[in-house]
Amino acid sequence: MTTRIDARFASLAAENRAALVCFITAGDPDVETSSALLKALPAAGVDVIELGMPFTDPMADGPVIQAAGLRALKAGQTLVKTLRMVRDFRQTDTDTPIVLMGYYNPIFIHGVERFLDDAKAAGVDGLIVVDLPPEEDDELCLPALRAGLNFIRLATPTTDGARLPTVLTNTSGFVYYVSVTGITGLAVPDYNKVAQAVARIKRHTDLPVAVGFGVKTAADAAAVSAHADGVVVGSALIATMAATLDATGAATADTVRTTTTFIEGLAAGVRGARRAAAAEQEAMIP
């Protein structure tokens, strides 16, 4: 079965460019602003949307995304409201893939089957659940695949050759390569190592590989997109948005526009960098 995610990566491959994958936290700083930003992402150049489901205890996230989640929760964001945002988005955009990203507990409490039904009905295409490694595939991954949703897995620098096949089994849509060990938004990746890692993953799978963690500027985005099928930007985007908020953390007139302007720059970086052919890439690696 071909999902919106498969279709999007296929059409970008035909254009020989990488996907710009952007992460925002649903409901940050409030559900209206967040909905407006969500709807503005495709026109700003976002190819794939990662919509964060806020959680009180985001163990893999750095301070920027932690703060985004807390703002959203304080404003009353819930899983049901996040799914409603996706449903509203789908009224006007039926092509841009949306991946829900978060932690397992809110899904588990909503009920796995009910969550999958609701997500599918709302127009969600895939899931990234940070605290569900392959060892816990029975929990959500396998039911999600049966429901026709992509389940996107994170591969990391600690995922060695012996473990990679385990990580790739039951992964679909794309592989999200976390370019540094650590939490979101902090360390800067070493692009040589990133290129090697992407090539290593591609030897094990035909799935597109998107690279994230530490991508902050249009230049970073361009550098990563030369080596990968997608470049993920999260913390830098949220930090840009957060800088427009007033002293109480509320949205201002500039919030959506400043954020989309930043994204337009990232998109230009990604579109300007043509992807090296896979064979060339392999040849460059010592």
Binding site: P133, L154, V178
Partner: peptide, 12 residues
């Protein structure tokens, strides 16, 4: 119980 952790920690 179980092992509900990020992939980075799984090998550890």
């Amino acid at each position: 119980g179980g092992r509900f952790v990020a992939e980075t920690l799984m090998p550890l």
